[in-house]
Write a protein that binds this DNA or RNA. Structure first.
Ligand SMILES: [Mn+2]
Ligand SMILES: [Mn+2]
Ligand SMILES: [Mn+2]
Ligand SMILES: [Mn+2]
Lengths: 234, 234
DNA sequence: TTCTTGATTTAGACAGGACTAATACTGCTC
DNA sequence: GAGCAGTATTAGTCCTGTCTAAATCAAGAA
């Protein structure tokens, strides 16, 4: 239980920091490990819907606990320790999402919010039981990898559907998890992880992508730039 | 979701107050409804392992929100509104205990603590799904009644095993839920809700009760006064 | 190299909760 | 009815987290 003694609020910051580091483009010198991606104070504040001073304040306190490395005016990044804590929460989150959907039939567009409510209070023991009950899953319902018990995060495809060329067929790897309207729509039209899709055509600059979904004889579905940028494929 | 906007800490006080009111002997004039049982500040403080001033402080704040009726030096009691909130948490707690034990195989002596960690973050939607998945249970694993969705609390037996006379056979209704050592022992010797037991004999004043357990050919089990007082039967 | 401006941090407050030390009640005893 | 003992409340702090307003920095424009 890496997480013990860390408040819900602090965990939210660590998780946000983790997500923002992942989202940020790989830092310049490809492969230069140790070159931690720094995340700006305002990015964190925005993500958590909190004021910038609040973020500064929390970053300092996390830095004092060696969970975050923070330099004034230069942003923050997770330390090894902070990353371990963040990954533990991510594991809780994704296991809960999976469990809620698989075992309790929670609609996938609601799973994210429900999991968020529970993730910081999940014990290792219950975590392990859910993991076993689900058959040791490797992906959550949105296709995100579930970190292992010891904090390893399997690498996943980073190619977005938006970047796929016309006529090419690809497999949906993951969809975003937190925009429930979009998720409801994706479920409706069948754009789910594991499904094969083909780009049929695309509208004018920045316009929608028309995507044909495997096993769906209907007309191709229109997907906005925003959403297709957030869908990873391989 | 009666509970929204009430902090984890505040919920703990309401729940403690509820439990203490239940435990207190029915107030004098049998049946005089409206005669709310008042709970002392120190009883609450002790139950929550908190200082007396902390309890005073919280009681005042709960009173300001009309969840508790509080008069200085005279203790506190739940208002109708406060009782509804408390019952909702009790429902969450007991459903979670049941779910953890039944669906995830959590040992019953651990269920209480695990449920306590999760109860204040359980949504109505997940609550309802667990309830359905369990087949709308009416009792938790320790034999406590689960309040209904609309906050009705079924009445239960209040006769304690300690008060049963020698030779009499009774059915265990409920056991205490929070002392895990005792629970582990009870499970081992088979003293579970629904099991029939007979008082074989009893030790000297305040000494242990020797109880024969249905379907258990072994020697009668010795149970302390404390534990048997906390076991209800019918 | 200096200016300007947007991003950040500092200052100062506040609410929720909890603690210790000091004070004030209450109820019981004589 | 006065005195005590034990309960309970008040006073004063502290810590977490959050906010707004004010000050400060860093980086690009000129
Ligand atoms: Mn999610
Ligand atoms: Mn864990
Ligand atoms: Mn319990
Ligand atoms: Mn509920």
């Amino acid at each position: 239980m890496v997480v013990t003694g860390t408040s819900r609020a602090a965990l939210a910051y660590l998780k946000a920091l983790y997500a923002l580091e992942e989202e940020s483009p790989r830092s310049g010198a490809r492969g230069r490990l140790g070159t931690a991606r720094r995340v700006t104070t305002s990015a964190i504040a925005e993500r958590l819907a909190v004021s910038a001073p609040s973020a500064t304040n929390m970053l300092k306190r996390l830095a004092a606990r060696d969970l975050v490395s923070y330099e004034p005016y230069k942003g923050a990044s997770l330390t090894r320790k902070g990353r371990a804590v963040a990954l533990e929460i991510v594991r809780h989150h994704r296991l809960l999402e999976t469990y809620l959907v698989e075992a309790l039939g929670v609609p996938w567009e609601e799973a994210h919010a429900e999991a968020e409510a529970l993730e910081s209070n999940l014990s290792e023991s219950v975590e392990e039981r859910m993991f076993a009950a689900l058959g040791r899953p490797r992906f959550d319902p949105h296709g995100h990898s579930i970190p292992t018990r010891n904090g390893a995060m399997p690498k996943t495809s980073r190619r977005s559907l938006w970047d796929v060329s016309d006529g090419e067929a690809v497999l949906v790897a993951q969809v975003p998890d937190s925009h429930s309207d979009a998720l409801r729509y994706l479920a409706e039209v069948g754009v789910l992880p594991g499904v094969r899709v083909t780009i049929e055509s695309r509208g004018p600059v920045g316009g929608p992508l028309f995507v044909r979904v495997e096993d769906n004889e209907d007309a191709p579905v229109a997907l906005s730039k925003e959403i297709t940028e957030a869908i990873w494929v391989h």
